[in-house]
Amino acid sequence: MKQRRTSLKDLAAELHVSIATVSRALHGSHEVGEEMRKKVQELAKQCNYHPNPFAQSLRKEGPHIIGVVVPNLVTHYFASVLDGIEDYAQQHGFLVFSANSHESCLREVRAIESFLTMHVDGVISCLAQDTIDYSHYEEMERLDVPLVFFTRTCLPDRFSQVVSNGDVAAYEATKHLLDTGSRRVAFLGGPNHIDMVKRRKHGYLEALREAGVPIDRDLVVCGKIEFAETRDKTLQMLQSANPPDAILALNDIVTYAAFDAIKSLNLHIPQDVAIIGFTEDDNAAFVTPSLSAVMDQAHVQGATACELLLRRIQGDRKVYKKVIPMIFKIRKSSDKQACED
């Protein structure tokens, strides 16, 4: 059974007192006796009541609020997703409050708790890379709080989600590398439990299998999505006895860490090491050499996630999965054969 969020009215009805009495008791007013204050506070805790400091002003004069949780707000991708969410929300009379989890599950949980306390109308979220416990989202379901995931998702049978076709894009990118002269293609990913990582790694492996290229486990590197760590792992691969001659990189952080590692060893791109990155960053066209990129339509993803959330807020309980196609832009960093011409 769905359980809606407890209100002051619910507490008042349970105790057979007025809403004003409950409100005063929760605020510790001297106008309410000690015994009643204890009863109200104990019931509020038992019912998981969250005070709503915005509710009165919102009901009278302001727009409603959507909470958004992103893992890393300083990246171009997440900033673009948030921009798409804000554009769509504004058109429909909603404000957007964003929280940066900094890739921390603990901060993600705290952000969700804060949004519940604020009584936001709904939440859009992308999982932090170390989130493997989804109980805070299961609590949102129990409280019947509208929720939509994007990019890194969980509980797909319960909540709508917006994702990209990363498996198809990774397959096409890997095939391009093989078709243009690369032979030992490495995959630089992220934590293996993340669905986005699984999809992109699957596409990469399928392209190798189809081409009859043996899969070398040493070339499949999945770890923390962090610049310094990825750079070090790339350097280790490139300095090994049997290094890769091409790299497919998971996202913008991983891509530029790998790019920097290649450059630091004075290797030539793409002659020595070709590279393709999953990145939304417009800078891909301006690095030297220009970077072949698989690009999310981040703004479209954000707008779509907001559209699904507003549907849910308005009563549509269908669980949707929207797949936004990625765009593959071939530039100079990936084609070894072009450099031979």
Rank of each mutant, 00 (worst) to 15 (best):
R142V: 02
D260L: 01
F187W: 10
G181P: 03
F227M: 13
N52F: 02
C105T: 01
R110M: 14
E86P: 04
L267E: 02
K201H: 09
F115T: 06
H64K: 12
L238A: 08
E108Q: 08
H27M: 12
G33V: 15
R209T: 15
E226L: 09
Q337T: 11
I65S: 07
E210L: 12
Q239I: 08
S135H: 02
A186E: 03
T288F: 06
V220S: 11
D335N: 08
L291D: 00
L116M: 08
L267R: 04
T75S: 14
Y88W: 13
L219P: 05
L15M: 10
F227P: 02
V81A: 00
D195E: 15
K329H: 14
T21R: 05
V213P: 11
K336F: 06
S98F: 11
P63F: 15
T151G: 10
T304R: 12
L250M: 08
A298F: 06
L116F: 05
K321D: 09
Q236I: 09
P214K: 02
I324K: 12
V197Y: 12
E31Q: 11
N48G: 01
L235T: 06
K336A: 10
A111F: 09
F259R: 05
D335I: 07
V287C: 04
I247H: 05
L177Y: 01
A20I: 15
C154L: 09
Q129W: 03
F149G: 05
A298P: 01
L267S: 02
M140W: 09
D216R: 08
P289G: 10
N52Q: 04
L11R: 05
K39C: 08
K224H: 10
I19G: 05
A261T: 04
L250T: 00
H202F: 14
G28A: 12
K321P: 08
D167T: 13
T131V: 03
F187A: 07
Q3A: 01
N192V: 15
V185C: 05
S23H: 03
T75Q: 10
G277S: 07
P289S: 03
L248S: 03
I262N: 00
R199K: 14
V32F: 11
T151W: 10
T304C: 13
L205C: 12
N192E: 14
C154G: 07
L248H: 08
P53V: 07
G212L: 06
T153V: 13
V162N: 12
Q271F: 00
R217K: 14
D218T: 02
K198P: 00
D272L: 06
S334Y: 05
A261G: 00
F150G: 02
A298Y: 09
E139F: 10
H50G: 02
V81F: 01
T288E: 10
V287R: 04
D10Q: 04
S114G: 10
H299Y: 14
A241W: 00
E86R: 09
L178K: 07
A13R: 12
R24I: 08
K318W: 03
T234Y: 05
V22I: 13
E206H: 13
F227G: 05
D87I: 02
M140K: 06
T151M: 10
V220M: 12
Q46Y: 10
K233E: 14
V123W: 07
M295W: 01
E31S: 09
D87E: 04
D133V: 13
M237Y: 04
K9V: 06
P270Y: 06
S264D: 02
